Amino acid sequence: MTAPKTYTGVAIALHWILAVLLVGMVFYGWYMEDLREALFAGGEVSIAEVQFAYNAHKTTGLLILILSLGRLAWRLTHPVPALPAGMAGWERFAATATHWAFYVIMIGMPLGGLIAASAAEPPTLLFNNPDLVLPKLPVPQTEGFQDLSGSVHGAGGWAILGLLGLHVAAALKHQFINKDGLIGRMIPFLKG
């Protein structure tokens, strides 16, 4: 079977939806941390606003987890376009490693957030609905564990931005320097 020239419509849609959600969540995470700091500093922020922000972040994180698992399942069951024939071995390795690193982070970040949320109070309300309380995982309910898991989860935001920068730089290199049409696999109207 020959490899397709572009990704499937489902793969393309999931790629761009998850890209927007992941980057949005990094910046929203920083925003909600600023809200929390403003609350502790006696700013004009209510605890309800902070809880709303955290619950929205956690609910969106679960959506990202579900979409990421769906994207991984789609990727494992559908052929992907071949890399350009002229790519060096190190470029092939870097492309493959970066793609799999994205899957690790797209699944790992929501799971890490779930662990951090399970160590924190108050409980997570999905869609900010008091009737939809997310069950807690059996993790230590200590401040130290909460701080550690929250810090690891927060550091993942930097990993997302780092991977994104690498991914975009490689796509632009292929589009404007190599001119091999690689970017057209995910943006079909940009062929060469």
Rank of each mutant, 00 (worst) to 15 (best):
P79V: 11
L164M: 14
I47P: 00
P138Y: 00
M109T: 12
Q146L: 07
E37Y: 07
R92S: 05
I177H: 13
I47S: 12
A159Q: 00
A56D: 04
I17F: 06
M186I: 15
E49P: 05
V23M: 02
T77W: 07
M87N: 09
L76F: 10
L111P: 06
L172W: 09
T8R: 02
T2K: 14
M32R: 11
W100T: 13
D180K: 08
G113F: 05
L126V: 06
A117Y: 01
A170R: 05
A56G: 01
G181A: 06
G162A: 15
A48T: 11
T59C: 11
L111F: 10
G192D: 12
V80G: 06
R71P: 02
L76V: 14
I187K: 05
G89R: 07
V139T: 04
G162Q: 03
A117V: 06
V168N: 03
F27M: 04
G154P: 03
D34A: 15
Y31T: 00
I177C: 00
A155G: 11
A170C: 09
R75E: 02
Y7Q: 04
L163T: 06
G89H: 01
L63N: 05
D34V: 05
V168R: 07
Q175F: 11
L62V: 08
I160V: 15
Y54K: 09
L166C: 12
A116E: 06
R75Y: 08
A56H: 02
P140S: 10
L114M: 15
K173T: 08
H99V: 05
A169R: 02
K179C: 08
L67G: 06
F27V: 04
G192W: 08
N129A: 07
L137C: 12
W30L: 13
S68D: 07
V139E: 03
K173Q: 11
F176P: 09
L134H: 01
L39P: 07
F145Y: 13
H57V: 06
P188M: 07
S151R: 09
G157D: 03
A48G: 12
G144W: 03
T96G: 10
V168L: 15
R36Y: 10
N128P: 03
T124L: 01
A41P: 10
R92H: 02
I160L: 04
H57M: 08
F52N: 00
M25K: 00
G61R: 04
D180S: 05
L72I: 14
E44R: 09
A119R: 00
H167C: 12
L22H: 01
P130K: 00
L190K: 05
F145V: 10
Q141K: 12
S149Q: 03
